[in-house]
């Protein structure tokens, strides 16, 4: 039973990790908590749903298109809601982010209504049994695609020229621009990649839990944020670790403490980590620039 619960936590955690990556990448570059990220996740799920059910697009193509659409939405939000405020106080951008989040979820409620939509499963529900745990085909898909996406992201950030530029901008925006890096372009790319990951998580959760609703982004958005902070905000491996840890803590908390407190467990973990290591598990101590 323990191994099964661990697996449940791992699968839940991998979706949190994908969401957390979007938060952490944006924060790493422009030090902004993009609170509209949960809505990008919701948007991705809806795009995937519409492509599969209305336009009858094959599932994997729909998955990629939903990621692309989410990336586009992320870029648009950045362009309309954050870029004009780049030079103003961080609080202004934060409020703009919350506004974008409320606007998007209400827009979705207006267009799609509040009844949950059923996400048809792309393939027959098959269950595999091992001596220690049972895993379904959908779960394997969620785990594998999260893993692949995380590997791809790490490769982009560590091995490509764009990744190098992203890291440079994260380290020091002004110096990076002096070195000939186009800051606006890098910010746009970062939003695109982070949002694509969020949209991917949305589609995966959609097929995993079979439902898509306009308000589905709220709680996972918060959890993704918590995961990013636990792992050390701005740190990419930290977001992955934080997501997985959070998922496992939540499931084990629900199993062994009380299922009423599963969300409480998640936020208690956040407080605990912040008390012991304020910069997050993998975060570096912050030094205010003089």
């Amino acid at each position: 039973m323990f191994v099964q619960q661990l697996m449940n936590g791992l699968i839940l955690g991998s979706t949190y990790a994908l969401i957390a990556l979007g938060y952490t990448m944006v924060y790493g570059i422009i030090e902004l908590i993009n609170f509209a990220h949960g809505e990008i996740y919701m948007f991705g799920a809806f795009v995937g749903l519409i492509l599969v059910t209305v336009l009858k697009v094959p599932f994997f193509l729909a998955f990629l298109l939903a990621m692309a659409a989410s990336a586009l939405l992320g870029i648009t939000i950045e362009y309309l809601a954050y870029r004009p405020l780049r030079r103003s106080s961080r609080l202004a951008a934060l409020i703009s982010a919350i506004g974008a989040s409320i606007f998007l979820s209400n827009l979705a409620l207006l267009i799609m209504g509040s009844t949950p939509y059923n996400f048809p499963t792309p393939f027959e529900a098959k269950v595999y049994e091992t001596p220690f745990f049972i895993i379904s085909r959908v779960e394997i898909l969620v785990l594998l695609s999260s893993l692949l996406l995380m590997i791809a992201l790490t490769l982009i950030v560590q091995k490509t020229k764009i990744g190098k530029a992203m890291r440079a901008v994260a380290q020091d925006k002004d110096t990076a621009s002096l070195m000939g890096i186009n800051i606006n372009k890098i910010v746009t790319i970062t939003f695109a990649i982070g949002s694509a990951l969020g949209g991917a998580a949305g589609v995966m959760v959609g097929i995993y839990f079979r439902t898509v609703t306009p308000t589905m982004g709220l709680m996972p958005g918060l959890k993704g944020f918590v995961a990013a902070v636990v792992g050390g905000i701005g740190n990419i491996p930290g977001a992955m670790l934080g997501g997985i840890l959070l998922g496992i803590a939540e499931v084990l908390g629900a199993a062994y403490i009380s299922s009423q407190y599963r969300d409480a467990v998640a936020f208690a973990l956040l407080i605990l980590v912040l008390l012991l290591k304020p910069s997050g598990l993998l975060g570096k101590p912050v030094q205010e620039k003089v």
């Binding site: 039973m1 099964q4 619960q5 449940n8 936590g9 839940l12 959760v205 839990f209 439902t211 589905m216 709680m219 939540e250 499931v251 084990l252 629900a254 199993a255 299922s259 009423q260 599963r262 969300d263």
Partner: peptide, 13 residues
């Protein structure tokens, strides 16, 4: 809780 999506830990128990 109302609105929960993941029930696997309760179901495993």
């Amino acid at each position: 809780m109302d609105g929960d999506e993941n029930f696997k830990s309760q179901l495993t128990s």
